[in-house]
Design a binder for these strands. Sequence first.
DNA 1: GACGACGTTTACGTAAACGTAAAGCCGCAT
DNA 2: ATGCGGCTTTACGTTTACGTAAACGTCGTC
Lengths: 149, 149
Amino acid sequence: MNDALDRGSLQGNQRTYTIGELAKMFEVTPRTIRFYEQEGLVSPLRQGQKRIYRDKDRVRLKLTLRGKRLGFSLAEIREVVLMYDAMPGGDALQLKRLLEIIAEKRSELDRQLEDIRLMRLEMDHVVQRAQEALSQLGQQEKQEKQEQI
Amino acid sequence: MNDALDRGSLQGNQRTYTIGELAKMFEVTPRTIRFYEQEGLVSPLRQGQKRIYRDKDRVRLKLTLRGKRLGFSLAEIREVVLMYDAMPGGDALQLKRLLEIIAEKRSELDRQLEDIRLMRLEMDHVVQRAQEALSQLGQQEKQEKQEQI
DNA sequence: GACGACGTTTACGTAAACGTAAAGCCGCAT
DNA sequence: ATGCGGCTTTACGTTTACGTAAACGTCGTC
């Protein structure tokens, strides 16, 4: 009855997802998503037993995975995400702490940019050397064929 | 007799280092460096029992740590580094494999650049919201003081 | 010649981030 | 009604990247 495009449901004008849908969407296993919940990174609603994820949770998951790709630990990611959530109502101290953390992360990102730049340079060198070596081998091959005549 | 600037030794016109020197230099523990050796990432010479590191090893360590900061596993780093070392003498197949691996890593780096860009944007938004909330709190404070008069 | 700083090996411990297996509930298509 | 796909919990297992402790060797120096 439902075709492949009709995934997820509509609840009170809010798009929702099952754990399996999100898992496929982000190419992780359901186990991973449950683990992230246990670590306080997503907080899906429940429909009886079943977890029911809203767009908010999908965004959380997206941010979490992006953080992971950048090498941040789940604990670090949670720290920022939870503070952000506590923002409307947080006191000045909390807000300043949040700004501090973000400043730290930002400088980490800057160091990463530099690391990427350097690593690219080195890769360029390696690629050059490898290609030279390859063309050398190509030449040698020709030589040997010539000698066979 | 030796002052602080006279670290390391000179062996056959080659600068060398002890494990402790390298450890301080890169802010890791000796244990970490020994572990990297066990994983085939550095191969120091031996002077009796003692490990003796050359510039080559220092560079290896530097590259390894840079890779780690970018979220690569030691196994991934080793793959590239070992192939690079086997380059002078590797056959065409090896060289092509090396180029393949590097191409993969490079595209990972590209995705990281994009991730960093996006994460920065989000951080900017968070910072803006936090600063607005802070100045709101500042205003409130003024208000309350006024009312006390 | 004892002491401290530094090095060594061996080996068990640990935190993070899941994987995997067992056992069971639920809706629904056959 | 039964089997199947997908969801659930519980719990133990695994990999990576080291930490930590024990027990010992080797300098330089006081």
